[in-house]
Structures are given as structure tokens and as C-alpha cells.
Computed example of a mutant assay.
Amino acid sequence: MRMSYDSEANAAYLAIEQDIPSGSATENVVVERPGQGDIVLDFDSDGRLLGVEVIGARELLSAAVLTTADDA
């Protein structure tokens, strides 16, 4: 697993799979956190979880977690 963080977009991505080819996420499930951000679960065509995007990362993740992420 690998986490990246884009401070300008305030978004983090936790990649479950090592390499996620473009277009392989065929289903996105959005969990809305009103006033805080959203969490998007990316699944492939076989229903396997590929990764988790956190939109509003500064509000939903601790600063300690964000400092461990790679720059996006």
C-alpha cells in the first residue's frame, strides 16, 4: 500500500494495489461527510478494492498521517 497527498487539492489517495492502470477503476462509491469532505472507494470490474481517495484530507486525516504520505 502507498499513500500520496496533494496539498493544493487537499486530497490523499491510499493505493491498495501496487500499480493501478488508468481506467481500471470501473466503480466509485462515494461516502459524503458534509462539511468535512468525501471518501471515494475505487473498485475494479471484478469488485476488488483498488484504492481510497480522501477529498478534504486535512479535515479527515490527522497531520501525522499526512506527513507520512508521498507528494502527489
Rank of each mutant, 00 (worst) to 15 (best):
L61W: 03
D44S: 10
L61V: 05
A9H: 04
D19G: 08
G56I: 08
D44W: 01
S4G: 13
D42T: 01
F43L: 09
V30L: 08
A72H: 13
P21E: 09
G35V: 07
A63E: 15
I20A: 02
Q18E: 15
A11W: 00
G35D: 01
G56E: 03
G37Q: 04
L41K: 00
D19K: 10
Y13A: 07
A69S: 13
V30R: 03
S45P: 13
A72E: 14
L49Q: 06
T26L: 05
Q36L: 12
L61E: 09
A64L: 14
V54F: 03
L60F: 08
Y13C: 07
A15E: 09
G23P: 01
I16D: 00
I16R: 00
A11R: 02
E17W: 00
A69R: 02
Q36T: 10
A63L: 09
S62C: 10
L14G: 03
G23W: 02
L41T: 01
L61P: 12
E59V: 12
T67A: 14
V31N: 06
A64T: 14
T67G: 13
S45N: 14
A12V: 04
A25N: 04
A25F: 03
N10S: 05
P34W: 02
S7R: 07
V40H: 01
D6R: 03
Q36F: 07
A9T: 08
V54M: 05
R58Y: 10
A25S: 11
A69C: 15
I20Y: 01
L66R: 08
D38I: 08
R33P: 05
V31P: 03
G37N: 06
L50S: 08
V52E: 08
S7V: 13
T68D: 15
L50Y: 00
L50M: 06
A64C: 13
V65N: 12
D44T: 09
L14A: 05
D19F: 04
V40M: 01
P21A: 09
N10T: 04
D71V: 11
T67H: 11
S62T: 15
D6G: 10
A15K: 06
G37V: 09
D70F: 11
R2L: 12
Y13E: 04
A9Q: 07
G37E: 10
P21N: 09
A64M: 13
E8T: 14
S45K: 14
Q18N: 14
R58D: 13
I55N: 11
A9F: 01
Q36H: 11
E53P: 10
V30S: 05
A72W: 07
R2D: 09
V54R: 01
G23H: 01
Y13R: 02
D71A: 15
L49R: 00
E59F: 07
G23L: 02
L49Y: 02
D46V: 08
L49E: 08
S7F: 05
D42Q: 11
S24M: 12
Q18I: 09
D19N: 12
G37P: 07
E32Y: 03
E59I: 12
M1H: 11
S24W: 04
R48M: 11
G23N: 04
G35W: 00
D42I: 00
P34K: 07
G35C: 05
F43K: 03
V65H: 13
I16P: 00
A69P: 11
N28C: 12
D42A: 11
D42L: 04
E17D: 13
